[in-house]
């Protein structure tokens, strides 16, 4: 199988404080080397702040590493995000148009897809209302719908499946599974939940404090991760 994305010794730092006399840095990823292959479903697991989201941004080409190299062999790599960029004063329809265009659609295609966005998101008459009147779940539904309708080669998902009502979550998971099965789309899922990774992925990486701790089959990596969490839990309780 061919590689879709390869990382070689990638390090990413964030500047946490600027000043004339002192610069402080926080290292989000340390010497990460990994490959994502065509058509596979990869899970990235780790606790909050371990560098998962930074890794997805590297995959998507949103940021470039401070050292090391990245090669992306596909053009359409898209981060599935939940409408953080929505304009609250504009209707769901207007936001759907501009968001689809941001993700790479022409205006014509964005307009053509509006009906299926309306249908899939189940927003009904709210679709014409300003987004500021939406509940959190509705915003998430609209965001997921727009992103999932894009034709992408690599779909990057950042812990988004747990939002919306139970019905919609099921539907979202089904759609993701269809993409996974089609083998045209490569899927990378980031989560702190071992169960979610096990449900969807074939292969997994475990990140801790920006370092790749384990990689391999999803069973092996998730069970290592879970015993690590159990250890922390026991230690905390012994204190």
């Amino acid at each position: 199988m061919t590689n879709v994305i390869s990382l070689n010794n990638v390090t990413v730092r964030y500047q946490s404080k600027i000043g004339l006399f002192s610069d402080e840095y926080f290292v989000a990823l340390k010497n990460i080397t990994l490959d994502i292959k065509q058509g596979e479903t990869v899970g990235i697991i780790g606790r909050n702040g371990c560098g998962k989201s930074t890794l997805l941004k590297i995959f998507a080409g949103i940021i470039e590493p401070d050292s090391g190299s990245v090669s992306r062999h596909k053009e359409k790599i898209s981060l599935l995000s939940l409408g953080a960029g929505f304009d609250p004063n504009l209707s769901g329809r207007d936001n759907a148009i501009i968001s689809a265009m941001m993700l790479g659609c022409s205006k014509k295609i964005a307009l053509e897809r509006l009906n299926s966005v309306l249908e899939y998101s189940e927003l009904g008459t709210f679709f014409e209302q300003p987004v500021k009147t939406y509940s959190t779940g509705m915003v998430a539904r609209l965001g997921f719908t727009i992103a999932v309708q894009m034709d992408v080669d690599v779909l990057l998902i950042d812990e988004v499946l747990g939002v919306g009502d139970a019905n919609f979550v099921k539907k979202a998971e089904q759609t993701i599974m269809e993409k996974v099965k089609s083998k045209d789309t490569t899927v990378v899922l980031v989560s702190h939940s071992a169960q979610q990774i096990r449900d969807i992925c074939e292969r997994a990486y475990w990140l801790n404090d920006g370092i790749k701790v384990a990689e391999g089959s999803v069973e092996k990596v998730t069970s290592l991760y879970e015993s690590f969490l159990d250890n922390i839990y026991i230690k905390d309780n012994l204190k």
């Binding site: 981060l79 960029g85 993700l103």
Partner: peptide
Amino acid sequence: GLMNQVSI
């Protein structure tokens, strides 16, 4: 917000 979600 936007530039952290899409490469633009």
